[in-house]
Design a protein around this nucleic acid. Sequence first.
RNA 1: GGGAGAUUAGCUCAGCUGGUUCAGAGCAUCUGCCUUACAAGCAGAGGGUCACUGGUUCGAACCCAGUAUCUCCCA
Length: 876
Amino acid sequence: MSLAKTYSPADVEAKWYQRWQEQGFFKATVNPRKQPYTIVIPPPNVTGVLHMGHMLNNTIQDVLVRRARMQGKEACWVPGTDHASIATEAKVVAMLKEQGIEKKDLSREQFLEHAFAWKDKYGGIILEQLKQLGASCDWSRTRFTMEPKLTEAVLRVFVDLYRKGLIYRGVRMVNWDPRGGTAISDEEVIPKDTMAKMYHLKYEVVGQPGRFLTVATSRPETIMADVAVAVNPTDPRYQDLAGQRVRIPLLGREIPVIQDDYVAVDFGTGALKVTPAHDLNDYEIGLRHNLPVLDILADDGTLNEKAELYVGQDRFAARRNIVVDLQEAGLLDKIEEYASIVQTSERTGAVIEPKLSLQWFLKMEHLAKPALEVVENDTIKLHPPKFKNTYRVWMENVRDWCISRQLWWGQRIPAYYLPDGSFVVALSEEEALGLAREQSGNSSLQASDLRQDEDVLDTWFSSWLWPISVFDGFEDPDNADINYFYPTNDLVTGPDILFFWIARMIMAGLEFRKEIPFRNVYLTGIVRDAQGRKMSKQLGNSPDPLDLIRDFGADGVRTGLLFSAPAGNDLLYDEKLVQQGRNFNNKLWNAFRLVKGWEADNNLPFANAQAVKWFEAKLADAMVVIDEHFDKFRISDALLTVYKLVWDDFCSYYLEMVKPAYQHPIDAETLRATVDFLETLLKLLHPFMPFITEELWHELAERGPKDYVCVAHWPKATAPADSATTLAEMERTLAIVAGVRNVRNQKNIGPTKQVDLAVKTDAPTEVQAYANLISKLANLSDLSFVSEAPASAVGFVQGSTEFFVPLDMQVDPAAERARVEKELEYAKGFRDSVNKKLGNEKFVANAKPDVLERERQKLADAESKIAALEQALGAL
RNA sequence: GGGAGAUUAGCUCAGCUGGUUCAGAGCAUCUGCCUUACAAGCAGAGGGUCACUGGUUCGAACCCAGUAUCUCCCA
């Protein structure tokens, strides 16, 4: 059998994923003999497709879950999707529009029918894509935030919080998204820097024809909603105008001039038009001065009839038109450009209008306090910890959460209005009717007399329950699953939803189960392109993850993404990364090919004790480091450690040490040790590269029906007794090998040409002990010990030992001399600096003994090296 | 405007309690090699005033103060 030179992932990935599923390895059940390890997936948008952010995020989760599974824990990764009300509804509306159907022509029931049809068609695509990535989720536990049970959980929570007095209904200034046709929460508003225009408008003073008060505004189309002009009471320019009236340009309506501290004297003209319906600050000024509220905007962003002018026009069209009309009327003083921030909707990108409306709110203060505490005292750890600060600031300034949305796709608010306008909140219509009869004292009320609130709940109002609701913790709070799997262990997600989701899950966990929802939060970075730009469809800089998996293999993509993804740092994606990932797979594949090709000969003596012992020590060291990295959630570092272990230590050194000559057999004991090493490496690699490791696991040996690396035991480090000595000796040996190779490179001697090595030392046994290895790795024809430097040789010094490679070519003594002198100079400089330190009384008096001892050792080493170099120089 | 964090090699980042030949890793670069596992490879090499200015200390990439620049969060 001959194995291909390159590894082809496509052939093996689908096969192993199916086998794992058939074996039920991903299924998690309550098992008191095992420690549970739980992750709930951040549920992706049900109609979404996999993007690079998902790839990174889910790779990290899978690495954690697979390692936990191998550690013998009951690993449970719960998958699922989010109904994503605004985003999905927008998609469905767009899809219907393409078919010539307008949302407003449909009833709520008809629309939801379309929406569910859409969800059934496209929902779950993303979960299928995650399987291609290798995600080891327990698919039998797949949940959907809008499925009946989870909807019931949401309604229970709403009713519960309402009865606790934490949910209220009120008129507030909300962020209105005219494109989405709904209010959105503060967290869904994205400020964007823009250049805006400041229009200076002239308001004529009543009774003083020809005198104008100039007001600066960036939104001239809102003047029709003006109810006053405000100036700062300390502003000398406008003292005489307070209490006067001015006329709104074009409209002519009279409004008062008022004084308020809020107005900044040095901004604009120092005179502020007050428009309570369309600006939060103006609203507050209006409250202070008892001003009316005049709302001139319709929900879709057009001007309504109260505006009197430009009725029916979009706000931006109205702005263009009113500027022209103002100019013609001579009421536009000037236009200035200035840098400003415009608030936009996260979901639709539309410019937000502050708008007064009747919404449902959740009081946050009571919920935020304990949620802040558990992060402050590290009961929940954020990785990296710098996010603690961000979290604290937000939690200390948290505002009530606007939870109602003027949409249809979502959980409908369980509030029922009575004919008299009052309302009751209840889980079901029947319950509501009972409450309504009680509340109104009218026992003849019928269900048909009640009208349910039209709004749905914010999507995050279901997501915040996710760690509990996926285990049915609301309908059945004491069930075995939730008691076993909750609190979950680690949560992996992006910092952009720290407040939307993470903070609120913590609140929900503490409120409804009196227990944190997870212990660690690993915050990934954002995947950007090589120039640091965000991945976006418009820029076309986002590769299709499935194309990458096809081209580089799932394992290659997973490792590629992890090479450069420290927690909390953005990942600058470059195809070089996944190439490196693929190359690593190929390296492993070829190491396997080499070992697989060896023939064992039982009659041969064990010839590689040194190499085997050394790699055992190396392996044990690396395992300790890898586990440390994992414990600190340094996933990239863990990968890099095993990467170097495999590539450098195992392939470049160990395999080269034990590799038999071409077509020669290998001794059985070395082969056994090597296969053991390879198996251990496969285990360490499995969380990162599940497919290739499973393939090689089965190629390496005949396996029993349940023997998969996927469920193999995570290896434990067992270092040989004298591993420190072993490592130090081998380090010295490899340095000698590197010295010879360096001479080869300097003198342009190819790797196939054998050379001699002459050693001048007082302690030949140290070198002699490793002579075979040195000869093999450096490709020597002879290793001899000498008392004098051979003629025409290039030398180097290791420790206090001199090495010479005699050459049959002319060696330039001047160049050799210069080289040695340079080295000598460096060594002397080093010695002098150590000497100076040791000569400093204060250092000797204050430094810790081990530091002092180290310095003395350094000095001794330097002295002997200098002696050797001086000798070498003398011989030249 | 307020707050937080960052600045180390061409790039992305480690560097723990101040002390190891401590200035590191990966990638990139350069040189030489198609050496019977791998050119998706092998061997070797070069490359940094640790942002700047002061201070503390026997000793500072690390601690302190200030300056500059960048990023994020909040207004």
